[in-house]
Simulated scan of single mutants.
Amino acid sequence: MKIASVIGASILELWMAIPLGFALRLHPVVIAIASAFGSIIAAAVVIFLAKSLRNWLMKRMERKNKKQGRMGRIWEKYGVIGLGLASPLLTGAPLGAAIGVSFGAKPVTLFIWMVIGIVVWSGILTAAVAMGMISLTSFV
């Protein structure tokens, strides 16, 4: 049940899932895997299954300037690779996937780079929290 809670929280937001995993006293490796898994599920749903959402976003982005905002600048400078690596940290996987789709990224390519970004940031954030917890316990 604890792991399912971390996966569920990660579907919504990676930043929420990792502290939840530590609060539930899960092992850091389990937290990293579960949080990555949840975010990957969210990205896959948006990229591959949410066709009406994709169509709405494509129409909306046609009316707006693609270069607005941080993700637009990342897209212009680094393309799908930069978006896939940065969005799990900056916007969350579901919104990052939606942004990539709205910018016209190929779904499979976007998914691959989103997975890489999710795994990298899940590992980094989990390790950072684990190190912080170790530091706190050494002071007490």
Rank of each mutant, 00 (worst) to 15 (best):
G79V: 02
M71F: 09
L90F: 15
R54Y: 10
I40C: 07
W56F: 09
G79H: 02
G72L: 14
N55S: 00
A93V: 01
G82K: 05
A43M: 10
V46Q: 08
W75I: 03
A43V: 13
P88V: 01
G72T: 14
E76Q: 09
W56E: 04
A93Y: 02
W75A: 09
K66T: 09
M61D: 06
V80L: 02
G82L: 07
A42Y: 15
N55D: 02
A50T: 04
N55M: 05
L85R: 06
N55I: 05
M58V: 15
M61C: 02
G69P: 12
G84D: 01
L57S: 13
Q68N: 11
I41V: 15
A86N: 00
K66C: 01
R70I: 13
R60D: 01
F48Q: 01
E62Y: 09
V80G: 01
L57R: 11
A44C: 05
G79T: 03
W56K: 05
N55P: 00
V46W: 06
I47E: 00
R70D: 00
M58Q: 13
R70M: 13
M58L: 14
R70Q: 05
I41A: 12
S39W: 09
V80D: 05
S39Q: 12
L53A: 15
R63K: 15
S39T: 06
L89A: 10
N65G: 03
G69V: 08
G79K: 02
N65S: 03
V80P: 05
I81F: 06
V80E: 06
K77A: 09
R54I: 12
L53G: 11
I41K: 09
S39V: 07
G72I: 14
E62V: 10
S52L: 04
I47H: 01
I40Q: 04
A93E: 03
R54G: 12
R60H: 02
A93L: 00
V46M: 14
L49W: 12
L49T: 11
L85P: 11
M71K: 07
K66R: 13
L57V: 14
I81P: 01
K59H: 11
R73M: 13
S52C: 00
T91P: 00
Q68W: 10
G82Q: 04
K66A: 12
M61Y: 15
G92P: 10
E62K: 15
L89C: 10
I81H: 04
I74F: 06
